[in-house]
């Protein structure tokens, strides 16, 4: 049964690779950050599946941290791209 989960981990890796193709081709910055976020969700999936394959609950902590901090990077991107025109420290 553990092998099934390892196989699932391999499949999830491939889905991360597909997401990164979008990151390569993505015309605008939004697609690129979207692809990085999708890769992040894929990494969380692999962490859960790998944890199940190896029965190591600590890997779920890694997944937990992955979910929280992936969104932090997107929030920072939204803040930084919200006004590329003027100086980011608000001097306009």
């Amino acid at each position: 049964m553990a092998d099934w989960f390892t196989l699932a981990a391999v499949f999830l890796l491939l889905s991360i690779a597909v997401a990164l193709v979008r990151c390569w081709r993505g015309p605008g910055p939004v697609e690129r950050i979207m692809a990085a976020q999708l890769a992040g969700t894929g990494v969380i999936g692999v962490a859960v599946v790998l944890g199940a394959a190896r029965r190591d609950a600590a890997m779920l902590d890694a997944a937990l941290i992955g979910t929280l901090l992936a969104a932090v990077a997107v929030t920072a991107f939204a803040r930084s791209a919200a006004r590329p025109g003027d100086r980011p420290d608000g001097s306009g």
Binding site: L13, I16, C23, A36, A39, V46, G66
Partner: peptide, 21 residues
Amino acid sequence: DALAAIAFFIAFGNLLGLAWL
């Protein structure tokens, strides 16, 4: 593109986390 570089670097960091797992 600089942002693509950073997005890939974030993905690289996540994949490294998987390497350590």
